[in-house]
Simulated assay, not measured.
Amino acid sequence: MSVATIQSDRLGANPFVVEGPIVSGSGIPGPNFALGAIAGGDRESEWVYCQLVLASQTTLQPGQWFQWTRDYVASLLTTAAAVVGQRCGVFSGAAQPPTLTGGPVGAITLAAGTYYIWLQRNGQAPSQVATATAALVVAETTTTAGQASAPASATTTTKAIANVNFAAANQTFTATTVNGSNLLGGIAGLSAGSGPFIGAAVAGTGIPGGTTIAGITYSPNGVVQSITLSANATANGTGITITATGVLEATLMRPFLSKVN
C-alpha cells in the first residue's frame, strides 16, 4: 500500500543535495527522508528520493538517466541493465560537494559508498542524449551509462523509455565571444529550466571543436547571465549563433521502461 507523506516548511527538501556517503558508526547523519518520498518544484517538476550505491568513484552529470527498483534503489540506466517496467528519471545536478568535487547545480564526483539522491521524474529537465528528434514522444536506452537516445525510428534491442518528450533536436541561442576568454556573455532569453545545460557540446564561430559547457551563472530569478566554456574562444564576436547538443531540455511525464524494441 502507499503511505502519504508531507514536505514541511521547517524541514524542506533540496533536490540538488546529495546525501552521504553513509558509513555506519561514522557520525554522518543518515538519510533525511523515506525512500520514495516526493519533492515538488516549479514547472510541474517532481523528484523522488532514492538510494544509490557506488562501487567505485563516479562522476554524476546533469541529465544522466537512472532507473530505480520498487524499493527505490537507483542505478545508471544502460540498455544491458535496463529492466522493463521499472521507473526512470534524470539527475538534475548537485548543489554541494559531499566528497570530492562539485558545484552549484552541476556535476559532482563521488567516492565509492552509499548515497541518497533526488532523481527528477516530472517536468522540464536536462537529458543526456546521443541523438534527438524534435517532438519525439518515446526515447530509448543506449549502451552508454546514463545516456538516452531519441532517433527517428527505434533501434533494435534497446529498451523504450515511455513518457518523455524533447522540445527540439538541438538548442540555439546568441552570445558574445571574446578572443582568449572562455566566458560567453550578451545572452538573452535563457532560463535555468530550458537550458542550455552543463555538459552540452557547443559549436559556433570562434568556438573550438569539442568545446562543452563547463558552468552557468544565473540571476536570483533563474535567468542565465553567463556561460563558462571548456575552451577559450578564438575570435571576438557579437550576436554569434551558438548550437548546443548532447544535453537537451526534456519534458518528463513519470517515464518508465516500457518494452524491448
Rank of each mutant, 00 (worst) to 15 (best):
L76H: 01
A4P: 14
I207L: 15
T144D: 07
Q128G: 05
I22F: 14
K259D: 12
G113F: 05
T99W: 03
A154T: 11
V105M: 09
V224H: 12
N170I: 01
T69C: 08
A94V: 01
A132P: 06
A214N: 02
N122W: 07
S45T: 15
V137T: 13
T109V: 13
T228D: 11
A201H: 11
T158H: 10
T238F: 10
A188H: 06
Q64I: 11
F166E: 05
L119W: 02
A139V: 06
T155C: 02
T141M: 01
W68Q: 09
F33D: 11
R254V: 15
G40T: 15
P21K: 05
P97W: 00
T99V: 13
G180H: 12
T156D: 12
C88K: 00
T143A: 11
Q120S: 03
G210Q: 11
A135T: 13
A214T: 05
N170W: 06
G237A: 10
A37P: 00
F91G: 00
A250C: 10
A34D: 12
N32D: 13
T177E: 01
T143I: 13
G30K: 10
E249P: 08
T177K: 06
G210T: 14
A37I: 06
C50G: 03
A203W: 01
A250Y: 01
L77E: 02
G85M: 05
F256S: 06
G12W: 04
R121S: 09
A154V: 14
L54D: 03
T79S: 09
A150Q: 01
T78S: 12
I28Q: 10
G103T: 11
E19C: 00
W65K: 02
K259S: 15
I216H: 07
A81W: 03
N182D: 03
V247L: 05
G93L: 08
G239H: 09
A125G: 09
G102E: 00
T78L: 10
L11W: 03
G186A: 12
Q64W: 07
V84G: 04
V178S: 08
G237I: 05
S45N: 15
L229N: 00
T228H: 00
V84E: 03
P62W: 02
S219D: 08
G189Y: 11
L183Q: 09
F173G: 05
V53Y: 01
